[in-house]
Design a protein around this nucleic acid. Sequence first.
DNA 1: GGATCATATGTAATCGAATACATCGCCGGC
DNA 2: GCCGGCGATGTATTCGATTACATATGATCC
Lengths: 354, 354
Amino acid sequence: MAKPAGSAIEPTIAERSSARDVARLAGVSTATVSRALNLPASVDPDTLSRVKAAIEKLRYVPHGAARALRSRKSDMFGAVVPSFDYALYARTTSALQREADARGYALVLAAHHYDLAIELRVTQQMVQHGVDAFVFVGLDHDPALFSLLDSYGRPYVLTWGVDASGIHPSIGFDNRAATYAMTRHLLDLGHRHFGLISAPTTGNDRSRERGAGVRAALAAAGLSLVDDDVRYGPIALESGTRAMRELLAKRDRPTAVLATNDVFAVGAMLACRDAGVRVPDDVSITGVDDTDLGATQTPGLTSIRTPIVEIGRAAALQLAARLEGRPVNLLQELPFELVRRASTAPPASRRRRR
Amino acid sequence: MAKPAGSAIEPTIAERSSARDVARLAGVSTATVSRALNLPASVDPDTLSRVKAAIEKLRYVPHGAARALRSRKSDMFGAVVPSFDYALYARTTSALQREADARGYALVLAAHHYDLAIELRVTQQMVQHGVDAFVFVGLDHDPALFSLLDSYGRPYVLTWGVDASGIHPSIGFDNRAATYAMTRHLLDLGHRHFGLISAPTTGNDRSRERGAGVRAALAAAGLSLVDDDVRYGPIALESGTRAMRELLAKRDRPTAVLATNDVFAVGAMLACRDAGVRVPDDVSITGVDDTDLGATQTPGLTSIRTPIVEIGRAAALQLAARLEGRPVNLLQELPFELVRRASTAPPASRRRRR
DNA sequence: GGATCATATGTAATCGAATACATCGCCGGC
DNA sequence: GCCGGCGATGTATTCGATTACATATGATCC
């Protein structure tokens, strides 16, 4: 049954039965076979069952490319994400795939590693492969991306943010409000000196907005963020660790460090652990995304629960609806939630004073 | 430039320029356009540049479905994984996607949530969509899956295990040897009473083999695993937590608990934390896969570093080679490595005795 | 009982690129 | 000076399903 391993060298794409074979066996025309598959109601029940039997017997699987060529649709969604290594996008994509599958759409996947030029390139390849509709992460994209999608009439939806201008269909939450709330939480605890660990902000509206949320909350409290207390790095534990090490080395170190995601925050916690700095006693640390990685640390990481799964699900629903001509809400703002755990507490100075 | 949000209701797949348009503009035939794209060496440099200019100008993107129909290949790989929520498969898939992209292949993704029937269904859909070659996880599959792939002549490779019979191309490591080594490690520390937290074993050769490795190591030491010390559950933190809670509640509790993956292990650590049981003083815990989740815990989780990324990379390379008719090793066994961290130590009894 | 219409099915054109085959120069060999 | 051969290009067929249009059959209405 299974082919002997050696034969694989020959890339023989073997015989498959076509609609003609089915038609012949069932004693009908190919048009009827096609109708039996796509508009079964328009076929006589008797004929239908004969065709179905023939399909079964021949193990007929329609040729998607032929179908796509003629009917101008492939039933494929494309997901273009920054990276897959951060569990976050994997989970969103998982939800997206699940929901797409349930509606008969396959999912084509690509990553651009935070490079908008690569994003444009892989999207073009997907258009070429016939992908019907697209999901992108974030609001920042090469203008050429939109003109490509536009000229090929491909629906798309941006995720993880809501396009305030309303130009682009988008599903996400208010990144700025999220970190604003988090900063507010730390201010309420009595913190006055803050550090920020952020992803690079070029081409990344999420991290830009998250930084803006922190600054806005501080400004509202008459405070501000010193440039030297802000550290940037690619999303990885080591970035958080390095950034925290640097912040800890300062004469005047922040009493609270906000990270724009849980990975940075956990990396920062590791740096504290290594340096013998206690969390939250000596320094409070917060993340965003509320991942297992953060939640399972000791102490548990205070974070923002973001609508990771909901975004994926809603994106699939929106695209399916649009392709099928059903009306949908093109702009969807989903809620987030601050999750308090043990990584945040009043600063030491404040506790003494009490 | 961007379409107004409202227009999306109309699924207008707009005009795209075809090879004919390019041919007309460049003053050549469509055959030459096709050759310019696929066998540039066979076209006069002068003509070539004229065609390229026309392509550029018209922003021509070849129609993949037409190409696939005629040339009988789509340049798409399919990855069928159990789940995407476990960061593991996401990382393997990430590597796979990256390597595939570098070679001009797109990646179509599906998950089957540990249901072999769903696996068969989504694979059939992928065949229908024209996917050229497949990557599956594990060695356990519905026989119909192989006969489907075989009758459609689609190359495939199984991953995360090595098919001892040599029937199926596969890339992975020796799951049994991995847990054997881990059990040996715990035996060497002096443990004699073991618990096991495992994923269900039906249709999952990895978890079956990992369990077998533990039993084999124990048998070699004249010990065995009591049924009541083995707990099963779906891969999630809660499964590990629940299992550990149950093991801790026993009169005669194990001094070492092996988990078949890091998620279970971390879940187990959480249960210990809640119950005030110290790791590794009161109980040693081990995982498999060496994820960040385990490595960043306090104490750090002793685990097995598995070739997560290498598997994805190698799978892409193998499939590309086979589709392109180049010879490759169809069976690849990759190394694993035991990573000792602070979650394992001699049992309390042993320590006292010293 | 003939016109009308709905239902079921067949016929044939079509989608866009790849490619087998034909054609046309042009060069070199003898 | 003729012919074989090669390089560059054009012509026309092909891939397999969808679908507009044509046709046949039988029911319905006045």
